[in-house]
């Protein structure tokens, strides 16, 4: 495997908050790679550092030490316009609270990243129509977020994250604010996109059900990656993978001393 095969490389990333006595180390040298087309999950208990890790990859936080390379470029050192160029075009975001802009219609929300990056209107429309079908959001296109259900909102947000064909989609607990049915629908759609379009997704989640859609899961605790699960391809069913995830989570609940 040569370096060009790795889409995202996280190299010995440290993140420290506060100074002196109040210093908290959230990430203690996390390293991993993401391959193109991979659906990677990150799981861990509250306070384990998983959201800090995702925010660092998302350029919302700057690592104290270490490098984050996206397509070989160190995005953690980006600033200003360079950063703006990457956001929304190379990186798509899916947040737990949807973060749709509530005075824009669904259509306007979805094409916003393309507009910002100056893509011409015809192309915007073409991309939009493709995603509208995939995520089944035709009926809400002209509605404002306040007129949509939670599930519809998150599907619109997913379409927005994917519209610019980003190199990687970062999803932070995307099912966190959804009921089981809507969560399943969303995960089905994301999985389908990953399988059919080959999009790369990095998802942080608590939810073992959502995690079972992933092809690989990293478990993080106290700022370090301490375990990894891979779905056996081919052969392993989603249910079987789900069972394996639950086993790890149960052990996780018992503390790191009795892990595997």
């Amino acid at each position: 495997m040569n370096i060009s095969d790795k889409l995202l490389q996280v190299k010995a990333v440290y993140k420290t908050f506060g100074e002196g006595q109040s210093e908290t180390v959230a990430l203690k040298g996390v390293s991993f790679d993401v391959l193109p087309g991979e659906f990677l999950g990150i799981m861990g208990a509250s306070g384990s550092g998983k959201t800090t890790l995702l925010n660092s990859v998302a350029t919302m936080l700057k690592p104290t030490a270490g490098q984050i390379l996206l397509e070989g470029k160190n995005i953690s050192s980006f600033r200003g316009s360079q950063l703006a160029k990457y956001r929304g075009s190379k990186i798509g975001y899916l947040f737990q609270e949807f973060e749709l802009i509530d005075n824009l219609t669904a259509r306007e929300n979805i094409i916003l990243p393309l507009s910002i990056h100056g893509v011409n209107p015809e192309e915007q429309e073409e991309q939009l129509q493709k995603l509208v079908k995939q995520f089944d959001i035709e009926s809400v296109l002209n509605k404002f977020p306040s007129q949509m259900s939670g599930g519809q909102k998150q599907r619109v947000a997913a379409a927005r994250a994917l519209i610019s064909n980003p190199s990687i989609v970062l999803a932070d607990e995307p099912t966190g604010a959804l009921d089981t049915k809507n969560a399943k629908t969303l995960m089905d759609k994301l999985y389908a996109n990953n399988q059919e379009e080959g999009s790369t997704i990095l998802m942080v989640t608590h939810d073992a059900n959502a995690a079972s859609y992933c092809s690989r899961i990293l478990f993080i605790q106290d700022g370090v990656i301490f375990h990894e699960l891979r779905k056996k391809v081919p052969g392993e069913t989603q249910n079987a993978f789900y069972e394996r995830i639950l086993t790890v989570l149960a052990q996780l609940g018992g503390g790191s001393s009795n892990v595997l």
């Binding site: 316009s81 975001y93 916003l112 990243p113």
Partner: peptide, 10 residues
């Protein structure tokens, strides 16, 4: 949010 979607501060 718009900044996260790639709009520069300027």
């Amino acid at each position: 949010t718009v900044a996260m979607l790639g709009a520069s501060i300027e």
